[in-house]
Write a protein that binds this DNA or RNA. Structure first.
Lengths: 166, 166
DNA sequence: TCCTAACAGTTGACGCTACAACCATACAGC
DNA sequence: GCTGTATGGTTGTAGCGTCAACTGTTAGGA
Protein backbone atom coordinates (compact mmCIF):
# COMPACT_ATOMS: atom_id res chain seq x y z
CA UNK A 1 0.00 0.00 0.00
CA UNK A 2 2.58 2.54 -1.05
CA UNK A 3 2.50 6.06 -2.34
CA UNK A 4 0.98 5.39 -5.72
CA UNK A 5 -2.20 4.00 -4.26
CA UNK A 6 -3.20 7.55 -3.36
CA UNK A 7 -5.43 9.56 -5.62
CA UNK A 8 -4.06 12.63 -7.33
CA UNK A 9 -5.93 15.95 -7.11
CA UNK A 10 -7.87 15.47 -10.33
CA UNK A 11 -8.98 12.01 -9.36
CA UNK A 12 -9.94 13.18 -5.90
CA UNK A 13 -12.03 16.04 -7.24
CA UNK A 14 -13.80 13.70 -9.65
CA UNK A 15 -14.37 11.09 -6.97
CA UNK A 16 -15.80 13.45 -4.37
CA UNK A 17 -18.35 14.72 -6.86
CA UNK A 18 -19.19 11.27 -8.15
CA UNK A 19 -19.62 9.99 -4.61
CA UNK A 20 -22.03 12.80 -3.82
CA UNK A 21 -24.06 12.07 -6.95
CA UNK A 22 -24.15 8.39 -6.09
CA UNK A 23 -25.40 9.27 -2.66
CA UNK A 24 -28.20 11.55 -3.83
CA UNK A 25 -29.45 10.12 -7.10
CA UNK A 26 -30.97 6.83 -5.89
CA UNK A 27 -33.07 8.64 -3.32
CA UNK A 28 -34.41 11.06 -5.90
CA UNK A 29 -35.33 8.26 -8.27
CA UNK A 30 -37.02 6.24 -5.54
CA UNK A 31 -38.87 9.23 -4.30
CA UNK A 32 -40.35 10.22 -7.67
CA UNK A 33 -41.34 6.68 -8.61
CA UNK A 34 -42.74 5.99 -5.17
CA UNK A 35 -44.83 9.15 -5.21
CA UNK A 36 -46.14 8.75 -8.76
CA UNK A 37 -46.35 4.97 -9.16
CA UNK A 38 -45.86 3.34 -5.77
CA UNK A 39 -42.67 1.64 -6.94
CA UNK A 40 -39.04 1.74 -5.93
CA UNK A 41 -36.55 2.35 -8.70
CA UNK A 42 -35.23 -1.18 -8.44
CA UNK A 43 -38.74 -2.61 -8.62
CA UNK A 44 -39.42 -0.54 -11.71
CA UNK A 45 -36.18 -1.75 -13.24
CA UNK A 46 -37.13 -5.38 -12.64
CA UNK A 47 -40.53 -4.89 -14.25
CA UNK A 48 -38.94 -3.03 -17.16
CA UNK A 49 -36.46 -5.83 -17.84
CA UNK A 50 -39.27 -8.36 -17.83
CA UNK A 51 -41.34 -6.21 -20.16
CA UNK A 52 -38.56 -6.31 -22.76
CA UNK A 53 -37.93 -10.03 -22.53
CA UNK A 54 -39.37 -12.64 -24.91
CA UNK A 55 -42.73 -13.79 -23.54
CA UNK A 56 -42.16 -11.16 -20.84
CA UNK A 57 -40.44 -13.99 -18.98
CA UNK A 58 -36.96 -14.48 -17.57
CA UNK A 59 -35.24 -16.94 -15.31
CA UNK A 60 -34.36 -15.51 -11.93
CA UNK A 61 -30.64 -15.87 -12.54
CA UNK A 62 -30.84 -14.05 -15.83
CA UNK A 63 -33.00 -11.33 -14.34
CA UNK A 64 -30.47 -10.96 -11.55
CA UNK A 65 -27.69 -10.47 -14.10
CA UNK A 66 -29.68 -7.89 -16.04
CA UNK A 67 -30.46 -5.90 -12.92
CA UNK A 68 -26.98 -6.39 -11.36
CA UNK A 69 -28.64 -7.74 -8.23
CA UNK A 70 -27.82 -10.62 -5.94
CA UNK A 71 -30.15 -13.58 -6.11
CA UNK A 72 -31.45 -13.23 -2.54
CA UNK A 73 -32.28 -9.61 -3.15
CA UNK A 74 -34.09 -10.40 -6.35
CA UNK A 75 -35.96 -13.24 -4.69
CA UNK A 76 -37.30 -10.93 -1.98
CA UNK A 77 -38.23 -8.24 -4.49
CA UNK A 78 -39.99 -10.63 -6.85
CA UNK A 79 -41.95 -12.13 -3.98
CA UNK A 80 -43.20 -8.66 -3.04
CA UNK A 81 -44.02 -7.88 -6.67
CA UNK A 82 -45.86 -11.18 -6.91
CA UNK A 83 -47.86 -10.33 -3.79
CA UNK A 84 -48.94 -7.14 -5.51
CA UNK A 85 -49.92 -8.98 -8.66
CA UNK A 86 -47.29 -7.56 -11.00
CA UNK A 87 -45.28 -10.75 -11.49
CA UNK A 88 -46.00 -14.47 -11.54
CA UNK A 89 -43.48 -17.18 -10.70
CA UNK A 90 -43.49 -20.68 -12.16
CA UNK A 91 -41.01 -23.56 -12.14
CA UNK A 92 -38.96 -23.79 -15.32
CA UNK A 93 -40.01 -26.87 -17.33
CA UNK A 94 -36.53 -27.53 -18.71
CA UNK A 95 -34.59 -27.23 -15.46
CA UNK A 96 -36.47 -27.98 -12.31
CA UNK A 97 -34.02 -26.03 -10.19
CA UNK A 98 -34.90 -22.84 -11.99
CA UNK A 99 -37.79 -20.40 -11.63
CA UNK A 100 -39.31 -18.31 -14.38
CA UNK A 101 -40.62 -14.88 -13.55
CA UNK A 102 -43.33 -13.55 -15.85
CA UNK A 103 -44.79 -10.07 -16.04
CA UNK A 104 -48.55 -10.10 -15.56
CA UNK A 105 -50.94 -7.86 -17.43
CA UNK A 106 -51.20 -5.66 -14.35
CA UNK A 107 -47.41 -5.46 -14.21
CA UNK A 108 -47.31 -4.45 -17.86
CA UNK A 109 -49.85 -1.70 -17.23
CA UNK A 110 -47.86 -0.52 -14.23
CA UNK A 111 -44.64 -0.23 -16.22
CA UNK A 112 -46.33 1.67 -19.02
CA UNK A 113 -47.92 3.96 -16.49
CA UNK A 114 -44.67 4.65 -14.66
CA UNK A 115 -42.31 4.93 -17.62
CA UNK A 116 -42.97 8.50 -18.79
CA UNK A 117 -42.57 10.07 -15.37
CA UNK A 118 -39.45 8.09 -14.69
CA UNK A 119 -37.85 8.97 -18.03
CA UNK A 120 -38.66 12.60 -17.47
CA UNK A 121 -37.04 12.48 -14.05
CA UNK A 122 -33.86 10.91 -15.37
CA UNK A 123 -33.72 13.49 -18.09
CA UNK A 124 -34.33 16.34 -15.66
CA UNK A 125 -31.86 15.18 -13.01
CA UNK A 126 -29.02 14.16 -15.29
CA UNK A 127 -29.25 15.08 -18.93
CA UNK A 128 -30.61 18.58 -18.60
CA UNK A 129 -27.30 19.43 -16.94
CA UNK A 130 -25.17 17.94 -19.72
CA UNK A 131 -24.21 18.81 -23.27
CA UNK A 132 -24.62 16.17 -26.01
CA UNK A 133 -20.86 15.78 -26.00
CA UNK A 134 -20.89 15.09 -22.28
CA UNK A 135 -23.60 12.48 -22.75
CA UNK A 136 -21.25 10.61 -25.08
CA UNK A 137 -18.40 10.98 -22.63
CA UNK A 138 -20.58 9.71 -19.81
CA UNK A 139 -21.59 6.67 -21.81
CA UNK A 140 -17.96 5.84 -22.51
CA UNK A 141 -16.85 6.43 -18.94
CA UNK A 142 -19.69 4.50 -17.32
CA UNK A 143 -19.17 1.71 -19.83
CA UNK A 144 -15.46 1.43 -19.05
CA UNK A 145 -15.99 1.48 -15.31
CA UNK A 146 -18.80 -1.04 -15.56
CA UNK A 147 -16.79 -3.44 -17.68
CA UNK A 148 -13.97 -3.16 -15.19
CA UNK A 149 -16.22 -3.42 -12.15
CA UNK A 150 -18.18 -6.49 -13.12
CA UNK A 151 -17.86 -8.09 -16.54
CA UNK A 152 -21.13 -9.92 -15.92
CA UNK A 153 -22.90 -6.59 -15.70
CA UNK A 154 -21.99 -5.71 -19.26
CA UNK A 155 -24.95 -7.80 -20.28
CA UNK A 156 -27.22 -5.21 -18.77
CA UNK A 157 -25.98 -2.60 -21.17
CA UNK A 158 -27.37 -4.37 -24.21
CA UNK A 159 -30.88 -3.65 -23.03
CA UNK A 160 -31.34 -0.24 -24.48
CA UNK A 161 -35.09 0.04 -24.35
CA UNK A 162 -34.94 0.27 -20.62
CA UNK A 163 -37.98 2.47 -20.18
CA UNK A 164 -40.56 -0.24 -20.46
CA UNK A 165 -41.44 -0.21 -24.13
CA UNK A 166 -42.26 3.32 -25.04
CA UNK B 1 -45.73 14.12 -20.17
CA UNK B 2 -45.32 14.25 -23.92
CA UNK B 3 -42.85 12.90 -26.39
CA UNK B 4 -39.87 15.02 -25.44
CA UNK B 5 -39.73 13.62 -21.96
CA UNK B 6 -38.38 10.39 -23.46
CA UNK B 7 -34.69 9.72 -23.55
CA UNK B 8 -32.94 9.47 -26.88
CA UNK B 9 -30.72 6.48 -27.66
CA UNK B 10 -27.49 8.12 -26.52
CA UNK B 11 -29.01 9.21 -23.26
CA UNK B 12 -30.51 5.78 -22.70
CA UNK B 13 -27.21 4.02 -23.31
CA UNK B 14 -25.44 6.38 -20.91
CA UNK B 15 -28.12 6.02 -18.28
CA UNK B 16 -28.27 2.23 -18.31
CA UNK B 17 -24.52 2.05 -17.77
CA UNK B 18 -24.54 4.74 -15.11
CA UNK B 19 -27.39 3.03 -13.29
CA UNK B 20 -25.48 -0.24 -13.25
CA UNK B 21 -22.38 1.47 -11.88
CA UNK B 22 -24.45 3.18 -9.21
CA UNK B 23 -25.91 -0.15 -8.25
CA UNK B 24 -22.58 -1.95 -7.95
CA UNK B 25 -20.11 0.60 -6.67
CA UNK B 26 -21.49 1.23 -3.17
CA UNK B 27 -21.47 -2.46 -2.38
CA UNK B 28 -17.87 -2.83 -3.47
CA UNK B 29 -16.77 0.12 -1.38
CA UNK B 30 -18.64 -1.10 1.68
CA UNK B 31 -17.32 -4.57 1.27
CA UNK B 32 -13.64 -3.55 1.07
CA UNK B 33 -13.85 -1.12 3.98
CA UNK B 34 -15.83 -3.54 6.06
CA UNK B 35 -13.38 -6.34 5.48
CA UNK B 36 -10.25 -4.28 6.05
CA UNK B 37 -11.37 -1.73 8.65
CA UNK B 38 -14.76 -2.74 9.98
CA UNK B 39 -16.37 0.41 8.59
CA UNK B 40 -19.06 1.16 6.08
CA UNK B 41 -18.19 3.63 3.36
CA UNK B 42 -20.53 6.23 4.78
CA UNK B 43 -19.03 5.80 8.25
CA UNK B 44 -15.57 6.27 6.80
CA UNK B 45 -16.74 9.36 4.97
CA UNK B 46 -18.11 10.86 8.19
CA UNK B 47 -14.85 10.22 10.03
CA UNK B 48 -12.87 11.63 7.10
CA UNK B 49 -14.88 14.85 7.04
CA UNK B 50 -14.34 15.31 10.77
CA UNK B 51 -10.64 14.63 10.40
CA UNK B 52 -10.32 17.54 7.96
CA UNK B 53 -12.35 20.00 10.03
CA UNK B 54 -10.86 22.61 12.36
CA UNK B 55 -10.45 21.06 15.82
CA UNK B 56 -11.67 17.86 14.15
CA UNK B 57 -15.11 19.12 15.13
CA UNK B 58 -18.28 19.91 13.20
CA UNK B 59 -21.86 20.67 14.02
CA UNK B 60 -24.26 17.91 13.05
CA UNK B 61 -26.01 20.06 10.48
CA UNK B 62 -22.77 21.00 8.79
CA UNK B 63 -21.56 17.42 8.84
CA UNK B 64 -24.85 16.38 7.28
CA UNK B 65 -24.34 18.89 4.47
CA UNK B 66 -20.79 17.72 3.83
CA UNK B 67 -21.83 14.11 3.64
CA UNK B 68 -25.08 14.80 1.75
CA UNK B 69 -26.98 12.91 4.41
CA UNK B 70 -30.27 13.55 6.16
CA UNK B 71 -30.05 14.57 9.79
CA UNK B 72 -31.78 11.46 11.15
CA UNK B 73 -29.43 9.23 9.23
CA UNK B 74 -26.41 11.11 10.48
CA UNK B 75 -27.72 11.04 14.03
CA UNK B 76 -27.99 7.26 13.99
CA UNK B 77 -24.58 6.82 12.41
CA UNK B 78 -22.85 9.17 14.82
CA UNK B 79 -24.45 7.42 17.78
CA UNK B 80 -23.05 4.12 16.56
CA UNK B 81 -19.63 5.67 15.95
CA UNK B 82 -19.76 7.15 19.44
CA UNK B 83 -20.58 3.74 20.91
CA UNK B 84 -17.45 2.43 19.24
CA UNK B 85 -15.34 5.26 20.58
CA UNK B 86 -14.53 7.01 17.30
CA UNK B 87 -16.58 10.15 17.88
CA UNK B 88 -17.64 12.22 20.86
CA UNK B 89 -20.75 14.41 21.00
CA UNK B 90 -21.09 17.56 23.05
CA UNK B 91 -23.65 20.38 23.19
CA UNK B 92 -22.55 23.44 21.25
CA UNK B 93 -21.74 26.28 23.68
CA UNK B 94 -22.92 29.03 21.36
CA UNK B 95 -26.25 27.49 20.39
CA UNK B 96 -27.79 25.09 22.83
CA UNK B 97 -29.92 23.48 20.18
CA UNK B 98 -26.84 22.32 18.34
CA UNK B 99 -24.53 19.36 18.86
CA UNK B 100 -20.84 19.26 18.04
CA UNK B 101 -19.33 16.00 16.87
CA UNK B 102 -15.61 15.58 17.52
CA UNK B 103 -13.28 12.92 16.22
CA UNK B 104 -11.54 11.09 19.06
CA UNK B 105 -7.94 9.93 18.96
CA UNK B 106 -9.17 6.40 18.26
CA UNK B 107 -11.29 7.75 15.41
CA UNK B 108 -8.29 9.56 13.97
CA UNK B 109 -6.24 6.39 14.11
CA UNK B 110 -9.03 4.47 12.45
CA UNK B 111 -9.27 6.91 9.56
CA UNK B 112 -5.53 6.87 9.00
CA UNK B 113 -5.55 3.09 9.09
CA UNK B 114 -8.42 2.80 6.63
CA UNK B 115 -7.45 5.54 4.18
CA UNK B 116 -4.79 3.80 2.09
CA UNK B 117 -6.86 0.71 1.38
CA UNK B 118 -9.90 2.80 0.55
CA UNK B 119 -8.00 5.09 -1.79
CA UNK B 120 -6.46 2.12 -3.52
CA UNK B 121 -9.90 0.59 -3.98
CA UNK B 122 -11.35 3.75 -5.50
CA UNK B 123 -8.39 3.97 -7.82
CA UNK B 124 -8.65 0.34 -8.82
CA UNK B 125 -12.42 0.32 -9.35
CA UNK B 126 -12.74 3.62 -11.17
CA UNK B 127 -9.59 5.36 -12.27
CA UNK B 128 -7.67 2.38 -13.53
CA UNK B 129 -10.35 2.11 -16.21
CA UNK B 130 -10.10 5.75 -17.30
CA UNK B 131 -7.71 7.95 -19.21
CA UNK B 132 -6.57 11.24 -17.64
CA UNK B 133 -8.80 13.02 -20.14
CA UNK B 134 -11.77 10.97 -18.97
CA UNK B 135 -11.01 11.82 -15.36
CA UNK B 136 -11.36 15.50 -16.25
CA UNK B 137 -14.56 14.81 -18.12
CA UNK B 138 -15.93 12.85 -15.20
CA UNK B 139 -15.15 15.67 -12.80
CA UNK B 140 -16.99 18.13 -15.03
CA UNK B 141 -19.96 15.86 -15.57
CA UNK B 142 -20.35 14.87 -11.94
CA UNK B 143 -19.95 18.49 -10.92
CA UNK B 144 -22.68 19.64 -13.27
CA UNK B 145 -25.08 16.93 -12.25
CA UNK B 146 -24.38 17.53 -8.59
CA UNK B 147 -24.92 21.27 -8.84
CA UNK B 148 -28.16 20.60 -10.64
CA UNK B 149 -29.25 17.85 -8.26
CA UNK B 150 -28.71 19.63 -4.98
CA UNK B 151 -27.02 23.01 -4.76
CA UNK B 152 -26.41 22.41 -1.07
CA UNK B 153 -24.27 19.43 -1.95
CA UNK B 154 -21.81 21.60 -3.83
CA UNK B 155 -20.30 22.37 -0.48
CA UNK B 156 -19.09 18.82 -0.26
CA UNK B 157 -16.96 19.28 -3.32
CA UNK B 158 -14.72 21.84 -1.69
CA UNK B 159 -13.34 19.18 0.60
CA UNK B 160 -10.65 17.82 -1.61
CA UNK B 161 -8.53 15.99 0.94
CA UNK B 162 -11.24 13.47 1.37
CA UNK B 163 -9.00 10.54 2.19
CA UNK B 164 -8.46 11.37 5.80
CA UNK B 165 -5.29 13.40 5.76
CA UNK B 166 -2.71 11.43 3.87
C1' DT C 1 -24.77 -46.79 -10.48
C1' DC C 2 -23.47 -43.95 -6.84
C1' DC C 3 -21.32 -40.02 -4.99
C1' DT C 4 -19.78 -35.55 -4.97
C1' DA C 5 -19.69 -30.87 -6.40
C1' DA C 6 -21.84 -27.15 -8.51
C1' DC C 7 -25.99 -24.68 -9.52
C1' DA C 8 -30.75 -22.26 -8.76
C1' DG C 9 -33.40 -20.41 -5.61
C1' DT C 10 -35.66 -19.46 -1.04
C1' DT C 11 -35.80 -18.22 3.71
C1' DG C 12 -34.72 -15.93 8.26
C1' DA C 13 -32.12 -12.80 10.96
C1' DC C 14 -29.73 -8.70 11.37
C1' DG C 15 -28.28 -3.92 10.16
C1' DC C 16 -28.90 0.43 7.90
C1' DT C 17 -31.95 4.20 5.94
C1' DA C 18 -36.18 6.89 5.37
C1' DC C 19 -40.05 8.88 7.34
C1' DA C 20 -42.76 10.81 10.84
C1' DA C 21 -43.31 12.37 15.33
C1' DC C 22 -41.38 14.64 18.85
C1' DC C 23 -38.64 17.90 22.20
C1' DA C 24 -35.89 21.85 23.08
C1' DT C 25 -33.94 26.13 21.80
C1' DA C 26 -33.62 30.43 19.14
C1' DC C 27 -35.59 34.24 16.88
C1' DA C 28 -38.96 37.68 14.99
C1' DG C 29 -43.00 40.51 15.47
C1' DC C 30 -46.06 42.85 18.28
C1' DG D 1 -42.31 39.94 27.59
C1' DC D 2 -45.26 36.71 24.85
C1' DT D 3 -46.48 34.21 21.19
C1' DG D 4 -45.76 31.86 16.88
C1' DT D 5 -42.54 29.95 13.86
C1' DA D 6 -38.28 28.20 12.32
C1' DT D 7 -34.18 25.68 13.49
C1' DG D 8 -31.28 21.68 15.39
C1' DG D 9 -31.42 17.34 16.78
C1' DT D 10 -33.08 12.73 18.57
C1' DT D 11 -35.95 8.67 18.71
C1' DG D 12 -39.11 4.87 17.08
C1' DT D 13 -40.81 2.23 13.43
C1' DA D 14 -41.20 0.11 9.15
C1' DG D 15 -39.00 -1.54 4.95
C1' DC D 16 -35.21 -3.00 2.03
C1' DG D 17 -30.57 -5.39 1.32
C1' DT D 18 -26.89 -8.46 2.90
C1' DC D 19 -25.23 -12.52 4.64
C1' DA D 20 -25.38 -17.23 5.99
C1' DA D 21 -27.78 -21.38 6.03
C1' DC D 22 -30.59 -24.44 3.79
C1' DT D 23 -33.39 -27.28 0.15
C1' DG D 24 -33.74 -29.36 -4.09
C1' DT D 25 -31.80 -30.37 -8.72
C1' DT D 26 -28.30 -31.23 -12.21
C1' DA D 27 -23.96 -32.71 -13.95
C1' DG D 28 -19.45 -35.07 -13.79
C1' DG D 29 -16.57 -38.83 -12.44
C1' DA D 30 -15.06 -43.32 -10.44
Amino acid sequence: MDQDSWLDDDQLAAWVRLAAVMELLPGELDSQLRRDAGLLHFEYFVLAMLSEAPERTLRMTELAALTTATLPRLSHVVRRLEDRGYVRRAPCPGDRRATNATLTEAGWEKVREAAPGHSATVRRLIFDALTPRQVDQLREIAGSVLGHLDPRADKAAVYTRYDGGR
